[in-house]
């Protein structure tokens, strides 16, 4: 567990209801999307399943050392059904992660493809140790 804490820690974002706002009077469901995290040559790679999320509806944000992804899913089932059987709920996706100092925040890049988000988190390049000259005091 400690090893994982060093680099990328998924935060617990329990499933909960988003408070209704004036622009969206209906209650929206919020889900935690399943993710993979693996190491590659480019750095850590984060993959998240966000079915139904489009580029316009996806927000990816780094603030301080917290990476947050939020994908909005607009209701895609027409009203007026006579009956329904649901195995999954339709709602938005939210999950956040704590980044370690090893991640180069400036070079984070992301792609969204067929409802799958892939974020590459490159590691900060290690700089060579620099010798510091010490002048002899008088």
């Amino acid at each position: 567990m400690n090893e994982m804490n060093n680099e990328l820690v998924p935060q617990n974002d329990p499933e909960r209801m988003v408070p209704a706002t004036s622009e969206a009077p209906e209650q929206r469901l919020l889900f935690t999307p399943p993710i993979d995290i693996y190491e590659s040559e480019e750095g850590l790679v984060l993959v998240a399943d966000l079915p139904g999320v489009t580029l316009e509806n996806l927000e990816l944000q780094v603030q301080d050392n917290k990476l947050t992804l939020f994908g909005r899913v607009n209701r895609y089932v027409p009203e007026g059904m006579l009956g329904q059987h649901e195995e999954y709920g339709v709602g938005d996706f939210l999950r956040s992660f704590i980044l370690s100092d090893e991640v180069d925040h400036e070079r984070i890049n992301a792609k969204l493809n067929n409802g799958v988000l892939k974020v590459v988190l490159p590691k900060v390049e290690r700089t060579e140790p620099r010798k510091i000259n010490i002048d002899e005091g008088e």
């Binding site: 567990m1 994982m4 820690v9 998924p10 974002d13 329990p14 499933e15 935690t32 999307p33 999954y88």
Partner: peptide
């Protein structure tokens, strides 16, 4: 740090 609830795991 365990898997948060709501993660769509272990299902069909």
């Amino acid at each position: 740090n365990f898997t948060p609830q709501g993660v769509r795991l272990g299902r069909t």
